[in-house]
Every structure is written in structure tokens, then in C-alpha cells.
Amino acid sequence: MTGTLLRSVLKDSLRSRWVVIYAVFFALITEGLLFFTSGEARAVLGLMNIVLLLLPLGSMMFGTIHIHDSRDFIELVLVQPVKRSSVFHALWLGIVLPFLVAFTLGTSIPLALHGKLLSPLSAVLLLAGNLLTMVFFALAFVVGLTFREKATAMGVGFLVWLLLGVLYDGIILAVTVLFVDYPMEVPTVTMITANPIDLARIFIMLTFDQAALLGQTGAVFRQFYGSALGSIVAVTCLLCWIGLPYTVALRTFSRRDW
């Protein structure tokens, strides 16, 4: 059942211009960064900022808008004898998959043209981007399903993005300042792990050699996340960040009175 629904949702998504614009945007910005910045490190820093900041914002906005724009379709489908959960799976996959493909293609083509696609750095950037896309679409579904007003949903979505993307680091800093007399390595590492964007950021930094700058605190982090076990834990944490909001959104979707 999910498959049939997914096919129709996908067809609908691909018909929208946004996916193409999204892909072209990533292609242009990656190409621009690789072409204009001297030195790989700077280009990677630029790409990292895009992946950590613009990509979550984009996913959040497209996700909330999508839920509200598909309302007619959802109501129509829910009248039919189908399970609500399969409708939800189809709905989520139908929007996430095109965006994952758009991001991956948009970023890899310029990287491939510059011969940098097979470096571990590109792999980590692509992996982080894909995971963050899924995280923020899942969060977007929670927000979009909880708030019935489209404008409110978008506003709340924006706030969630602002909180995770920008303000959260401010909170970490404030906590560090407040407890400056205590060893803060473990709490900081824990707080960073609890935020998908920070986790992705550290993960990317550990891959390119900026890691050496992280000093003693970084050593704690590198020891753990630099190992194979650590990578698994980091990816698992990000997968949890997809799984939890996804489950919450699914519950909201199943119980909601349309």
C-alpha cells in the first residue's frame, strides 16, 4: 500500500520546481566555492556552513509547507480504506527522497568535476548532509502536524531551526561560562552530542585535519568519535534524531482529527 502511495507522492514532488531549484542551488554554490576559494580547506569550510545552516533551514521550511500543501491529498486518501501509518510513510519518503537525491547530485557533480568526490571529506559532507536532511524533515513533520495554521507552523519551524542551529551553541557557551571552575569536557561533549547540527559539525571537523586544533577537549572527543565505534555512535545518534521525531510525527498523524 505504501508503495502505491509513495509512487503517486513522488510523482507529485518531482513535478514541483522546488526540487530542481534546490539541486541547482547546491550545484552552483558548491561549484562557486570550489572555483573561487583558494585552498581546499576554505572551500570545505564554506561547504560545511552551507550543509550545517542552509540545508536544515531548507528542509524545515519545505517540510512544513509540504504538510500543509498536501492537506487536500491527505484528506482524500484518508477517506479510502488505507492504514494511516502507510499514508504517513509514503508522505515522508515522498518528500525526503527527492530532496536527498537533489542535495547529493547537486553537491557531487561539482565535486566530481574538481576530482574531489572520492575524498573522505566529501563522503563525510554528503553523509552529514543526507542525515541532516532526514532529521529536519522529520522535525518539520512534527511541527507541521502539530500546528494547523500554515504561517504558525512555518514560524515555529523557523524557531526550531534557530534554536538548534544558532542559539543552542550560545546556551553551551553560557553553561561553560557559568561553570568555568569545573571540568567541562564531558558535559560539553554530551551537550554537543545532543544537537544534530553540532554533532554533524564536529564529525566533519574530525575528518579534515582541523581536529588537531581542538586541543585537550578535542582529544576527549577524538578518542571517542575518531574510533570506528565512535563513528557508529555518532551516526546512531543522528539516526535517533531521525527516528524520534519521526515516531512523534507518526503518532500525531495517526491521532489527528483531520
Binding site: 553551551i172 557557551l173 554537543i192 553540532d198 571537523m205 581542538l214 586541543g215 577537549t217
Partner: peptide, 19 residues
């Protein structure tokens, strides 16, 4: 900040710090 609170190095390249 990093000199006085070494653990804040983990916030390197974060948007909040840039701002």
C-alpha cells in the same frame, strides 16, 4: 574564550560564535 575556557573549542566554526 578558548584561552580562558578550553572546552569551548568544540564550538569552532559554529554560527553563534561567528555572530
Amino acid at each position: 574564550l578558548v584561552e580562558s575556557m578550553p572546552s569551548s573549542i568544540l564550538l569552532m566554526h559554529s554560527t553563534f560564535i561567528d555572530v
